[in-house]
Amino acid sequence: MYKVIGLTGGIASGKSTASAYIEEQGFKVLDADVYARKVTEKGSPGYHKIIDAFGAHILDDDEEIDRAALGKIIFNDPEERQKLNQISHPEIRRMMNADQEAFIKEDHVFLDIPLLFENGLDKKCDLTVTVYVTRENQLDRLMSRNGLNEADAAARINSQMSLDEKKALSDRVFDNNGEEENLFRQIDEFLKELQNEEL
Rank of each mutant, 00 (worst) to 15 (best):
Q86F: 12
S162W: 08
A18R: 00
I5P: 05
E63D: 11
F103R: 10
D171M: 13
K105P: 05
I11P: 01
D66H: 05
H57G: 01
E118P: 11
N196M: 07
D61I: 06
V39A: 03
R145S: 13
E63W: 07
E24I: 12
E63V: 02
I50D: 02
V4A: 09
Q86T: 05
E80Y: 01
V34S: 14
S162E: 09
K15P: 01
M95K: 04
L199V: 04
A102V: 14
D188H: 01
Q186G: 03
G14P: 03
T8K: 06
Q100E: 12
Y35Q: 08
E189W: 08
M161G: 01
I74E: 00
E24F: 14
L148R: 10
R145T: 13
K3N: 10
L194F: 04
L139M: 12
N76E: 07
F54D: 04
M95P: 00
A18K: 03
R185H: 08
R185F: 11
I104N: 08
D140T: 11
E197Y: 10
I113Y: 13
E79D: 12
L169D: 07
Q25R: 15
Q195R: 05
G14Y: 05
R141F: 07
K83R: 09
V39P: 00
E181M: 13
R94L: 14
K42G: 10
G9R: 00
P114V: 12
A154T: 09
G9V: 03
L183Y: 03
R172F: 15
Q138A: 06
I50V: 08
N85Y: 03
L142V: 05
F75T: 02
L111E: 12
F190M: 03
E136N: 12
L116C: 14
K123D: 15
F27D: 07
T8A: 04
N137C: 09
Q25E: 14
T128N: 08
S170W: 09
E91Q: 12
H48P: 05
D66E: 04
G120L: 10
